[in-house]
């Protein structure tokens, strides 16, 4: 209970700063309107009133965002093109598919790296190089290239997602699979254990804490990948599409609501991985 107070305090401070910023940023429009109407410059009270609920504010106020979020989440049929649940699901499904692909790829590469000297020397530099490419630059190319061979919809977005999420899994798993100490490896050597047995009985179980840490980073990266993958698709569906159409039509409230929806989805996904992590590691006797 004691921990709630600081959290609430911080949230209140952020909300207060946000309102102040909204007044400041939305004020020019109010002055502008007054000048056009030939009215005298508005006083502070009027300014305050007219910056709170503009239709196309530079910065929407918190209550506008929350209202829009609630309305487009709960106030619409789930199948409606204006429902955030609909768009959220489109993005989440691409995120989860990409996350599964990225995790699989990351684990496979890590297994290769620890067992094969050539891969050990060659894969990592490429993997690191791949992550220095701005995703915004290659996302459209991936979409266009795949589209030209008839692949569209979920898969291209999932591939972009996987492109971002394989990396943390790769790095974490290489470290995790190498985490057993020399004594542990020597013990298995005295039993004449093969590489395969060493992998399944020692390396893989030892890597679990590292895997889950990576998965939490990876799933957040997957979500970013899925959203970025939606931006160049002509914006039909998904949280990315909402962001894009919001910016086409100057719907700042819609943009902010979609941003918050994305943040909430990210939080929920990361927490879900965390819950699974807690269960698995406790069952394995690795946290106490």
């Amino acid at each position: 209970m004691r921990s709630i107070l600081p959290v609430v305090t911080v949230v209140l401070i952020i909300v207060a700063l946000w309102y102040a910023a909204a007044v400041r940023l939305n004020a020019p429009w109010v002055y502008d309107q007054a000048e056009r109407a030939g009215a005298p410059a508005p006083g502070f009270g009027q300014l305050l009133g007219e910056t709170m609920d503009q239709e196309r504010p530079v910065l929407p106020t918190p209550h506008q965002v929350v209202t829009e979020l609630v309305k487009s989440t709960f106030g619409m049929a789930v199948s409606s093109k204006r429902s955030l649940v609909y768009h959220g699901w489109v993005t989440i499904s691409a995120t989860l598919l990409g996350f599964a692909m990225g995790t699989g790829l990351g684990i496979l590469l890590a297994v290769g790296i620890i067992h094969n000297r050539a891969m050990d020397l060659s894969v990592m530099p490429w993997a690191i190089a791949s992550q220095t490419i701005p995703i915004l630059a290659i996302a459209p190319m991936i979409i266009v290239v795949l589209n030209s061979i008839g692949v569209q919809g979920l898969i291209p977005k999932a591939i972009i997602s996987a492109f971002l999420s394989f990396f943390p899994v790769l790095v974490g798993m290489v470290k995790g699979l190498r985490s057993p100490d020399q004594m542990q490896l020597d013990l298995l050597a005295t039993y004449g254990a093969s590489k395969r047995e060493t992998f399944w009985k020692l390396r893989l179980p030892s890597s679990m804490p590292y895997l889950f840490t990576s998965l939490k980073v990876g799933i957040a990266a997957s979500l970013v990948g899925a959203i970025v993958g939606e931006l160049p698709t002509g914006a039909v569906a998904g949280l990315g599409a909402r962001l894009l159409s919001g910016s086409y039509y100057g719907q700042t409230v819609q943009i902010w609501a979609a941003l918050f929806a994305a943040a909430l989805v990210a939080a929920v996904l990361v927490m879900a991985v965390g819950v699974i992590e807690g269960r698995v590691l406790r069952r394995m006797g690795m946290v106490r």
Binding site: Q184, D186, G192, L202
Partner: peptide, 18 residues
């Protein structure tokens, strides 16, 4: 070793927690 001639005990027990 292949004939399982010896068992080896290290300074740390090194039991698998899982």
């Amino acid at each position: 070793r292949r004939k399982r001639a010896y068992g080896y005990v290290f300074q740390a027990a090194g039991l698998y927690p899982w």
